[in-house]
Design a protein around this nucleic acid. Structure first.
Lengths: 170, 170
DNA sequence: CATATATGTCAATAATACTGACGTAATTTT
DNA sequence: AAAATTACGTCAGTATTATTGACATATATG
């Protein structure tokens, strides 16, 4: 009885509590992402698109002039997978592709006015959800939120969701 | 020139900064979730499973005795979708299904020893990732992280990723 | 007994994604 | 200038996840 083991729930057991907190985090992440994306998915159905289209629209809108391979690097999917989705978006007039004048092998992607409109429609919804959560949580919590999320991201990609200057243009 | 418009990046423009912060949050969420799940997906390939199996394994492991409909409520997919995945996990001996003695319409799901082993293998990897991020961020940041994530989740499901007592058994 | 609930299943389809193989154009290297 | 590399595209086949719709069965509840 006196072996301070690892299965008692007495409040002096940080190991148990730690594991509990970590699992809680995993679930929070699951549910938050599920609901965060669910909202946008509903909008996309009206356009005949899915979440893959959303991701493309989003990152092209956010990084005008992004190349195909840069986009592949962000999405981490194969070019064959991207091809279908991107092709549809171009055919339907949401995205345009033009040759880079500097390196004509490259294709630069950007949104049309129509694409920008859809981008806004999708983004404002998700953005409102985040804004509400931010407002309710307060500035300090927001900072913690970003710090932890950044720590979860693979080191090589941590910079991607930060810098808004000195990017994309080489 | 004196119209204090909405497109200058002068540091006295909270609206611009706000939008920027919100989009940053969306991207952090995207990348964090991508990398968080990517690791587990790699393990699952060796078992011939996909991420759908992971989610089932995870929530069954976390909620032993969960019913089929409760699981559907968490995953928010159709029962036909769940059926295939759950059937495979049962056939391969990772999950067991037994009738609830109280209400024999219900099927209670739980992991086998083999299932628990896979659960641990998957969870420790993800858990380590979170733990590292937590350690680097500090306790206050962690609290903020949880608070904001909870705020992002649809109100009706916010309780799901918290309570570990007084649940599941009614 | 009638109805509702919990689960299962058959069938058809869509969306996302993969591997592998090849082709072309443009740039870079030797 | 020839050779190699890079960026992109595409054809074919397949796997996984998910959907809608219809129907069946067992159990519980009024």
């Amino acid at each position: 009885m006196a072996d301070a083991g690892s299965r008692h729930k007495t409040r002096a057991n940080p190991l148990f509590l730690r594991e509990e907190k970590l699992r809680q985090a995993m679930e929070l992440l699951f549910f938050a992402y599920r609901d965060f994306t669910g909202e946008a998915n509903a909008v996309l159905i009206d356009y005949g698109f899915g979440h893959a289209h959303h991701r493309v629209i989003y990152f092209v809108g956010r990084n005008p002039g992004i190349t195909v391979s840069q986009l592949l690097g962000i999405l981490k999917i194969t070019k064959q997978s991207l091809s279908r989705v991107l092709g549809q978006l171009i055919d339907d007039g949401y995205v345009v592709k033009e040759s880079d004048r500097g390196d004509r092998r490259r294709r630069l992607l950007s949104l049309t006015a129509k694409g920008a409109e859809l981008w806004t429609q999708l983004t404002t919804r998700q953005s409102n959800r985040i804004a509400r959560a931010y407002r309710e949580a307060g500035a300090d919590a927001v900072e913690g939120f970003c710090t932890v999320l950044r720590g979860i991201i693979n080191e090589e990609d941590r910079g991607r969701a930060t810098r808004r200057d000195s990017r994309n243009r080489q």
